[in-house]
Amino acid sequence: MVWSIDYHSGVPVYLQVVQQVQSAVASGVLREGDQLPSVRALAEQLRVNRNTIARAYGELEHAGALENRQGSGCFVRASATPLRKAVRTERLTGAVDSLIVQAHTLQVSDDDLRGLLDERLTEFDARRKSEE
C-alpha cells in the first residue's frame, strides 16, 4: 500500500496514518491477516517520529483494527469491532453531520447527497470485490 503524509492538510500526522489504514481496510487494499510494516520501517520510510507511528498503531489496536502479536508484528484484524452498535453510530454521527453541513454550504440537494452516498458505497463495494 502507498503511504503518504500531507503537511498541508492540517490533520495530525498520527491521525493521517490511522485514516490511511482505515481507508485501505474499507477499500480492501488491506485484508484480514495482512501484516503492516514495523513501526521502525514505516517511520523511516515516511521520515516521521517513531512515537507518531507507535501512537497510530496503538489507536488502531485499541479500535480493534489491528492486532499486535508480540515479536512478530502488527496484523489487520477481521472487521469485527469491539464497539457496540450504539457507540459506532454515535461516532459516525459527527462525520455525517459535517457532511450534511458541507453539502448545504455547497448547495447540494438532499436527494443529490443521497445519490452521491449510494454511488460511493457502490464504488467501494466494487473496489473490494476487485481486490478479492
Binding site: 521502525r40 517511520a43 523511516e44 516521521v48 517513531r50 512515537n51 507507535a54
Partner: peptide, 11 residues
C-alpha cells in the same frame, strides 16, 4: 536518526 536513536526505550 529515526531508525537507530529511538531503538531502545523510545519514551
Amino acid at each position: 536518526v529515526i531508525s537507530t536513536f529511538q531503538d531502545r526505550d523510545p519514551q
